[in-house]
Simulated scan of single mutants.
Amino acid sequence: MKSILLHVGDDRGFEGRLQAALDVARSFGAHLTCMQPRRIPAYFGADAAGFGAGAALVAELIEEETRAGRAVRNRIEADLSNEDVPFSWEEGIGEPADLLIAASVLADLVVMSLPAPGETPPASVAEVVVRADTPVLAMPPAARGLDVTKPAMVAWKPSAESAKALRAAVPLLARAASVTIVLVDTPEGGDLPPTDAARYLSRHGIRAEVEDRRTGGQGVTAALQQAARDLGAGLIVMGAYSRSRAIEFLLGGVTKDFLESSPVPLLMAH
């Protein structure tokens, strides 16, 4: 991992994901690219009451947004100048997820934040995971950096998405104190059994244990989160949306649950 893309914003989760991006960059001697999206308010013209100052108001809002964005950039660049990580800056106007996806084509990892309960995320992790071809490191709102040496857990499901996430995570898994592949209520054998995943990792010099868990009536998400706590995991690796994303958001699913309440940082791929 030599090119890390960081979503820059003035939200509560930024400091945590900044520290995580720096942790990863230091671990791999990587370059940090800071992407700062800016939304510009749309101009819809005068309203039915004859309000005619719309253009002037929008121009003022744009200027305010520009000033605020410049202040954020100045502050962050000043902080980064004291770090031992090379960095560069990009900015764009538009939806944050769209800009991050466009900037990710030559990145090895995108670092974003999960929202706190009841909050609207500054950028949609789900959008970036599904539409980008680059894995996403999604940081919980309370996380303050990423300890790459802590145990790692792979939430395994026999799917192409799980396999893609596993491949993307190899550099991080190689630095973890231990790696455990956890499957929940999944029958042994068949296509892509967890033993195949462990064998794949072994070829990269990574020893992984396989652990089978049962839901016991508590659901797959709860079983995986309990496993992460039991293992002391500092990172969960999982594939995203192995069924239709629309169906998962309508009916619920493991990906949706973890995007809403992951106990530890997530590395996700689709």
Rank of each mutant, 00 (worst) to 15 (best):
I206V: 14
T134E: 03
E65Y: 02
G29H: 01
V210G: 06
G13L: 01
T255A: 13
L267Q: 07
R199P: 00
P263H: 11
L259S: 05
F249P: 05
A21D: 03
T221N: 05
I247C: 00
D212K: 15
A176Q: 04
P135L: 04
R73W: 02
P265Q: 13
T215A: 09
V179A: 05
Q36T: 06
A71I: 00
D196Q: 14
A197D: 04
A168T: 08
A107V: 03
A240F: 03
E211W: 09
T134L: 07
D84W: 02
F44C: 09
S113H: 07
P121H: 09
D185Q: 14
A197P: 04
E77C: 12
T255N: 15
G16I: 01
Q19M: 10
E211V: 13
F51D: 13
T180Y: 10
S202L: 10
T186P: 10
A68Y: 05
L32W: 05
D23A: 05
P37Y: 04
S3H: 15
K150P: 10
M35W: 01
Q226M: 09
G216Q: 04
Y241H: 09
A42T: 12
R26L: 03
I247R: 11
I76H: 06
A174S: 13
Q19S: 06
E127D: 15
L109C: 11
L146Y: 10
A246P: 03
K2V: 04
A240E: 01
G234D: 02
G54S: 11
G45I: 08
M268E: 07
A138Y: 07
G232H: 04
A20P: 01
V72C: 05
A56L: 14
R26M: 01
R207C: 07
G9M: 04
D230H: 11
P263V: 13
P141K: 12
T33W: 00
G190C: 10
S81I: 00
E64W: 08
E248R: 02
S262L: 14
Q36A: 10
G239D: 02
S162Q: 09
